[in-house]
Each structure stands twice: as C-alpha cells, then as structure tokens.
Simulated scan of single mutants.
Amino acid sequence: MFCGRCGVSEIRIAMARKWMDEFLVHPHPELGREGDVCPFMSRSLSEGHAKLLPFDAREGLTALLALIGELRSELERRGESAGNRRAYLTSVIVPHGLPDDEIVALIARAHGELKGDFVERGLMLGEFWPRHDVAGLHNEAFRPLDSPLPLLAMRHMMLTDLAFLSGDHVDPEAQLTYLKHFRRLFGDTLTGSWPSRLESAEEAARRAYDSASI
C-alpha cells in the first residue's frame, strides 16, 4: 500500500519501483527468450545502482531537457569509476504534475531530441508509458515498454544494445548513424560472433536506407 501522507511524487516513485520489482526483474512467458525482462535491472536494484528521481512535468520541456542533461553528465561521471559495475548504473526520471497523456507527449519529445546524442556518447535513453505499442525484439506480441506510468530511463550502452539500434523498428538513416557510433565505441573490442553481427546489421541498414531512398 502507498502512504496516505506521501506526496504525489513519492507515490509515483513508489509505483515505478513496484513495476520494476514485479516486471523488469523477472522472466515473462511472452518475452520470447530466457532470462529477466531486463537482464541488468535485478543487480542494479539490489546493489543500489538505480536512481529514481521525480520531475514536475508542469515545468515543461526545457526543464526536462536540462534535468536529462544533468543526469547524463552524472551517469558518465559515475561510469568512470564503476568498472564492470557500469552496466548496472541507471537513472530513471518519474514525472508527475500533469495528466499521463501530456507527460507521454513531453517524454516523447525529449526522447526524440536527445536519443542521438545519448547514442553518440555511448549511452541509452529509453521511454516507457502506458499502452506503449513498440513490440518486443523476440516476440511481436510482447510490449516491453508498456509501464503503468510514463518514465524516462538512461544507462550505459552494452553490446546487446545492438538489437535496439538496428532492425525494422528503427529508421534506416538513424540506424546508419547509431551503428557508426556503436562501431566506434565497441569495434576494437568485439570478439566471437559480434563482428559478424555488427556487419550484418550495417549491411541490412544500408539496404533499408537505399530502398527508402528510391
């Protein structure tokens, strides 16, 4: 139960944490692969690497972009000394103060403006909200970004994020840009099947871009 004396921001953060505890850190029958919905979040939460911060959405887009910028810089600083724990560093913005549909529109604008910058820096910026219709990577019927309230999350990029930066769900021109940054960040360290997986993603992105340009 939520505290009757808590403010709206505290209640929203409690709702977000409850969803993370009950959904993200467990397997799901519709996920389409083994493991938790989010492979990194269980350790992130248990070791205290996840930060949930409120944001009054009535302050508007400029204030939200400023907060994202501050948290992005903080995340980069945290990552410098985190070593192998860098994968578990997460910051989640929990907006409040407006109807959810207005918050969703605000998050979508911020995400659209900043995702490219995040990828260039080796970071990921993810948006979540109720009835989010983006399909899962391993099961088109699964909706991994469907959350009980609008959220905006950021973390360091991992090799497995290749799947989120390429494919039919990403604009072909954006894919080429994202993959260029991915190669710059990881190209010299790729082993095993990763070089061929990256090359395949690049080739598919070029074909998709060429087809869209005809």
Rank of each mutant, 00 (worst) to 15 (best):
M1F: 14
C3S: 14
C3M: 10
C3F: 12
G4N: 06
G4M: 05
V8T: 15
V8R: 10
S9C: 12
S9L: 09
I11E: 03
I11L: 05
R12Y: 11
M15N: 11
M15I: 14
R17W: 08
M20P: 00
D21H: 07
E22M: 00
F23W: 00
L24Y: 01
V25D: 01
P27H: 00
H28P: 03
H28G: 05
H28A: 02
L31T: 04
L31H: 05
G32K: 06
E34K: 14
G35R: 05
G35M: 12
D36V: 03
S44C: 02
S46L: 07
S46V: 01
E47N: 07
H49L: 04
L52S: 01
F55P: 07
A57H: 00
E59N: 13
G60P: 13
L61T: 02
L61K: 05
L64C: 00
A66W: 13
A66Q: 11
I68R: 03
R72S: 04
E74F: 10
E74Q: 12
L75S: 05
L75T: 01
L75H: 03
E76D: 11
E80C: 10
A82P: 11
G83I: 01
R85I: 08
R85N: 15
R85Q: 14
R86K: 12
A87H: 10
V92A: 06
V94R: 01
V94H: 05
P95R: 04
H96F: 15
H96N: 12
L98A: 09
E102D: 08
I103P: 00
H111W: 11
K115M: 06
F118S: 02
V119F: 00
G122K: 13
G122P: 05
M124T: 02
L125I: 03
L125W: 02
H132L: 01
V134H: 06
H138F: 15
E140R: 15
F142W: 09
S147C: 06
P150T: 05
A153L: 10
M154H: 01
D161I: 14
D161Q: 07
L162M: 05
L165C: 01
L165S: 12
D168W: 02
D168C: 04
H169E: 11
H169P: 04
P172S: 04
E173T: 15
Q175S: 11
Q175H: 09
Q175L: 12
Y178A: 14
F182G: 04
G187W: 07
G187A: 08
T191Y: 09
G192T: 07
W194F: 10
P195G: 06
P195K: 08
S196D: 15
L198K: 03
E199V: 11
E199P: 12
S200W: 08
E203P: 03
E203Y: 08
A204M: 09
A208I: 07
A208R: 13
S211H: 09
S213D: 12
I214Y: 08
